[in-house]
Design a binder for these strands. Structure first.
Lengths: 124, 124
DNA sequence: TTTATATTTCAGCATTTGCTTAAATAAGAA
DNA sequence: TTCTTATTTAAGCAAATGCTGAAATATAAA
């Protein structure tokens, strides 16, 4: 760390310390939450999540067809999201259906609503 | 696109087409929203956003100090978020204070609440 | 004007991400 | 069992990301 010449004259030391403490206390939480949000913050994965929100369940093959993408690519996205508990699976013979876990369905609802109404440009 | 041998036997063609249409219609919206979420889905930026939520406004130097990171690195994160309208600035002499834009403050509130109560592990 | 403070910008680089292709696994049908 | 369908996994690579360090910009104080 170099460029740290700036220990501000009028910095609020109490504020700085309070913040440092908060960050240190919440550290793993930040990591965990940021990781979850980074999964949602991808073009393809956001589409998958939205489609699952709308259609309840879909298989890799459906998603591959819908998004015009390689099955392998989709499968890798699904795996990441399943590993992080955004998605769950259910097998029906050879076909594996993916769906949103209830927790994330709830948490991401505001974003799906925005997409549903296609009102992002006004809202965000 | 190679591995696309799987045009499922029992695929619901109507469903697939409905989905294709939805995705195509919302395409730029997905891009825009995913880009916004990808900004939030980063460790350092999530911390910055949370700190601004708690403290209302902070300068690069404060954040650099709190997070123990290079000022330049912080500045580059702030720029990205300002460019995407997550943040706004206000100058006070040499110091530039960053704060959340009202829209994103509202939209990200659920995540800040989770952090506030440090209840991520149960919730997510 | 010169000097100090606060911040941004740029170039370079290592790491991470996301896709492609090919091979592996798994379940049902012939 | 062999063949087909559905999916996952692994290796390789190109593009994107995030950090470092140095130089540039901007405001205020001496």
């Amino acid at each position: 760390m170099e460029n740290n010449s700036c220990i501000r004259q009028q910095a609020d030391i109490d504020q700085i310390n309070r913040c440092k403490e908060a960050v240190s206390e919440l550290n793993e939480t930040f990591d965990y939450l940021a990781n979850g949000l980074s999964l949602v913050g991808n073009n393809v994965r956001l589409k998958i999540l939205y489609l699952l929100f709308e259609e309840k369940k879909l298989c890799v093959c459906d998603l591959s067809d819908i998004l015009g993408m390689n099955i392998s690519a989709i499968s890798q996205h699904l795996r990441k999201m399943k590993d992080r508990n955004l998605l769950q699976t259910e097998r029906d013979a050879q076909t594996i259906f993916y769906s949103l876990t209830p927790k994330y369905s709830t948490l991401l609802n505001p974003f799906f609503e925005i997409l549903d109404k296609n009102k992002v440009l006004e809202t965000i």
